[in-house]
Nucleic acid binder design. Structure first.
Length: 519
RNA sequence: GGGCCGUUAGCUCAGUCGGUAGAGCAGCUGACUCUUAAUCAGCGGGUCGGAGGUUCAAGUCCUCCACGGCUCACCA
């Protein structure tokens, strides 16, 4: 049952179906199986970009290209078309009377967005544009739906994310973001691999969601008859591998957190985690500076980048601030006010930070950083000296066990990395886990009280003996945001999570409003 | 979940004080053998997100709902 509002759309689609039938009637295959491609638009440009017209005329070689028709300018018996392929675009020049087979009908019934194979020689048009003079054109696949307008593109944000294929087709900047994303990830793989890190894959489905504090997604395994959780972090598994003698490991994969969506949060997001035995958090800060500045140089050509209108210099060394100094510097709360829980709570609340009455001192400090300090940390900054009570997996400082050897890296007011020297004392780890379990707030809707155990298996693994190790997580999506100057995480995730829209087939064909069945 | 803003043709957008819904592109018909935002002539295309309400009259005002954006909360 087509909706009345789709009338115009249906009519445009019907036109295109009629054109498809015309090609069929002329003996052309509608969706032919194979067209042998012998060149690309970029290859032709590369080879003939500087060749003058008179020399092009002597080439005499035929090229076979395939791609999508993105512009069409017909002139009676001739036509110009822009053919886009994965490497770029080139202009096709067609004389109808030179076409073979069903070519004339194919050309006459061509629509914007059609996929075609074209064969011909090269020439330069009167205006000097390198073009392919087409002698054979084959419809490879019909585009039945009208594309968005040619110079405004597709702007509507919701439609862009719901119809990402169309977004990628008509908005070149979108494609560039995902090309950069792929290159960033490739760079990181090579960077870590060249330093002896082994890439591994650890469980996405875990019996106990560990390695972070976040509300997990739950699922059920039928054959095992048990609930499982989508992982919120791979941390505990990666450290098991370090115990197993894989001294340097990394994983780039998805984490899942059942929490709010925002311009900086998607329920599934990509995390790099890596662990290096016999290293400390200091070593990882140095490695992070080097990796990210090199990455920017490799991808953008410079360690000087611009993010949301602000220049940022990723060159080492980055700034370093203790958590308390960061608070004092960016909020004006005096250092001694941060010394005890009561005065810290009062000072933070005075500045509008939402806190619970029983929040611990460490938790107060961490929340103040998130709320008031993070927005100021535009230039790359390591915040260090986190409180032990908010860092259950980190190694305490030898000279002050109330603090841990931990850092978070902020760039462009985004939290990009979190790393620390790992706690490898199994007895202390058990105490921390138990304390975490005991201190949960049963009234907090985000706390899963069904989880009643600690990860004894992990403790047992630590008892085998984990070398002194440092580990770190880097949010890949946020890093890509930074290096592509993207304001929202949705711009750097191909299919960001959206609420399903009624009346559009999201999960399958023919979705319809639930209300249509009633009455 | 709260606040603010948005939703008009396939796409990008106008729509004044509440008084018969518009443009450009895309589409259709015709002309055109070098255009590239092709040009020229003509034509069609609307559940104004949905449902109620106020009114002689609602795209416009009110209420609720849906979806989205920003933001706050949440998120070590």
């Amino acid at each position: 049952m087509p909706m009345a509002s789709a009338d115009e759309s249906n009519r445009l689609i019907q036109n295109r179906r009629t054109n498809l039938e015309a090609v069929r009637a002329a003996g052309g295959a509608a969706y032919p199986n194979r067209f042998v491609v012998t060149s690309t638009t970029a290859a032709i440009r590369e080879r003939f970009g500087d060749t003058p017209a008179e020399d092009l005329a002597k080439v005499g070689e035929q090229f076979r290209l395939a791609g999508r028709i993105m512009a069409l300018r017909a002139h009676g018996k001739t036509a110009f078309a822009d053919l886009h392929d994965r490497t770029g675009r080139i202009q096709l020049f067609v004389r109808k009377d030179q076409l073979e087979g069903a070519g004339t009908e194919t050309l006459s019934h061509l629509d914007l967005g059609d996929l075609v194979g074209a064969e011909g020689g090269v020439l330069r048009t009167r205006t000097g544009e390198l073009s392919v003079e087409v002698t054979n054109i084959v419809l490879l696949a019909k585009s039945l739906r009208p594309l968005p307008e040619k110079w405004h593109g597709l702007k509507d944000v919701e439609t862009r994310f719901r119809e990402r294929a169309v977004d990628l087709l008509v908005n070149p900047g979108v494609r560039e973001i995902f090309v950069k994303r792929a290159r960033i990830i490739q760079f990181i793989r090579e960077f870590l691999s060249s330093r002896g890190f082994l890439e591994v894959e650890t469980p996405m489905m875990q019996a106990l969601p560990g390695g972070a504090t976040a509300r997990p997604f739950r699922t059920h395994h039928n054959a095992l008859g048990m609930d499982l959780y989508l992982r919120i972090a791979p941390e505990l598994y990666l450290k098991r591998l370090v115990v197993g003698g894989l001294d340097r490991v990394f994983e780039i994969n998805r984490n899942f957190r059942n929490e709010g969506l925002s311009t900086r949060h998607n329920p599934e997001f990509t995390m790099l985690e890596f662990y290096q035995a016999y290293a400390t958090h200091e070593d990882l800060m140095a490695l992070t500076e080097e990796m990210l500045s090199e990455c920017a140089r490799e991808i953008l050509g410079s360690a000087q980048i611009e993010y949301q209108g602000q220049p940022i210099d990723l060159s080492p060394p980055w700034g370093r601030l203790s958590l308390r100094d960061a608070i004092t510097r960016h909020t004006g709360i005096a250092g001694d006010a941060l010394a005890d829980r009561g005065s810290a709570l009062e000072a933070a609340r005075a500045l509008g930070v939402k806190l619970k009455d029983d929040d611990s001192l460490g938790r107060i400090l961490a929340k103040v950083v998130d709320a008031l300090v993070e927005p100021h940390l535009v230039q790359p900054t390591f915040v260090v000296d986190y409180p032990t009570e908010v860092s259950p997996l980190s190694r305490p400082r030898d000279d002050d066990p109330s603090l841990v050897e931990r850092f978070e890296a902020f760039i462009g007011a985004l939290e990009v990395a979190n790393g620390f020297s790992e706690l490898n004392d199994p007895d202390e780890q058990r105490r921390r886990f138990l304390s975490q379990l005991d201190n949960r707030d049963p009234d907090d809707p985000d706390v899963d009280m069904d989880i009643r155990e600690i990860d004894e298996d992990y403790i047992r693994t630590l008892e085998v003996g984990m070398p002194p190790t440092a580990g770190e997580g880097i949010g890949i999506d946020r890093l890509v945001m930074l290096l592509t100057n993207s304001h929202s995480i949705r711009e750097v995730i191909l299919f960001p999570q959206l609420r399903p829209e009624h009346g559009r087939g999201v999960a399958g064909e023919g979705g319809e409003p639930p209300s249509s069945e009633s009455a």
